[in-house]
Amino acid sequence: MSIKKILGTALAVASILGFAASAEAKTTVRISHTQIETHPDHIGFVAFKNFVESKAGDKYDVRIFPNSSLGANEKVLELVKMNSVQFLSVSTANIESFNKKYAVFSVPFLFTSESNFEKFITDPEVLAELGSDAQKDGFRPLGAFTAGTRNFYSKTPINTVDDLKGKKFRVQAGPTNVKMMEAFGAAATPMSFGEVYSALQQGVIDGAENNELALTDQKHGEVCKYFSYDGHQMCPDLIVASEKFLSKLSDEDRKLFEDAAKEAQKAEFEAWHKRIAEAKEQAKKMGVTFIDVDANAFREKVLPLHQQLLNENPAMKAMYDKASAFDASNNK
């Protein structure tokens, strides 16, 4: 995106949101995410808002903008870097084009269990290491939301890895996801989340890959009646903050927002696990069949890709080694 376009977007957002403020006015803190208001990400940010305003409501007015109302994550991330938006929930797959080490979470089958994944992404040392380039990146992760495991869903059953051959699947933007689908023998079609429903309806794609909430919250289960549990990826949604915003805060207020991110993280995890169970039952009522596949057969197809990805992107090796060691030690 050109600087001219970014500035134009920022000015438009500023106009919509109303940047005018007097010296006495509260500081407006804007939070953006792409999900609907019943989604765990939103519930997490409500906890964030309540925490900040209960502790320092005289100073901050926290406003949440759900459902991509400020735009797609890639665009909003640019606004975060400019401090036009202060916080954003964004998948690591959307960040890897800004900093290649975030691509580590797109490596298929990096973790062997969802429990190991959740412990890793909430480790303060991991978040600190991810944010080590924050001054250059313009944003810093303060917490993480779980997004569960990513699995395939489609119009036709995926019982084995061979059932992916020749099919077109939507993936999140990022070269790692394209390589993964090629390794599976399928064609990758990157597109924004909001475009997936119509693409499925119109036959532009045969399926997609995500968690169970995509079936219900985005109504993808109206078109795709088969959901196969292969668990090929576990990509967190990071709570990223504008580095410009953080750098202007007092130590006390910075800790306030860091603690708010932890509260958001806690609330989102709790809501996530409850919502997934509900979504699965809801999807069954929509006519979706859930299929347990041999995940090892899927894993074997893409394990050779690990070394290729590390060779092509050495920036993620330190985090890859850390994740691999963490996963191994927690399996003992």
Rank of each mutant, 00 (worst) to 15 (best):
I6Q: 10
L7F: 13
A12M: 11
V13R: 07
V13M: 08
S22V: 02
A23C: 08
K26I: 06
P40A: 12
H42P: 02
I43N: 00
F45Y: 13
F45E: 09
E53Y: 02
K55T: 07
K55M: 12
A56H: 13
K59V: 02
S68H: 12
G71K: 10
K75A: 14
L79F: 08
M82L: 15
N83Y: 01
V85Q: 02
V85R: 00
Q86E: 15
Q86A: 09
F87E: 05
L88K: 00
S89N: 08
V90H: 00
S91P: 06
A93G: 13
I95Q: 11
S97L: 08
S97R: 14
N99K: 10
V107K: 01
F111N: 04
T112I: 00
E118G: 03
I121F: 08
P124H: 09
P124I: 08
E125I: 07
V126H: 08
V126W: 04
L130W: 05
D133F: 05
A134M: 03
P141G: 06
L142A: 07
L142P: 01
G143I: 02
A144F: 09
T149R: 12
T149E: 14
R150L: 15
Y153N: 03
P157T: 11
V161A: 15
K165Y: 07
G166R: 10
G166T: 12
K168D: 11
F184D: 00
A186E: 01
A186Y: 03
M191D: 06
F193G: 11
G194C: 04
Q201Y: 09
Q202K: 14
G203K: 12
D206V: 12
A208Q: 05
N210R: 10
A214E: 14
Q218P: 00
H232W: 09
E243L: 02
K244S: 10
F245L: 09
K248D: 13
D253I: 02
R254A: 04
K255S: 10
E263R: 14
F269R: 13
F269C: 00
F269N: 06
A271E: 07
W272S: 08
A277G: 04
E278P: 02
E281Q: 14
E281I: 07
Q282T: 15
A283R: 01
K285H: 05
T289D: 09
F290Q: 06
F290Y: 15
D292S: 12
A297S: 15
A297D: 14
E300W: 00
V302H: 05
P304I: 09
L305I: 08
N311Y: 00
N311I: 05
E312G: 05
K317H: 03
M319Y: 07
A325W: 02
D327M: 12
S329F: 04
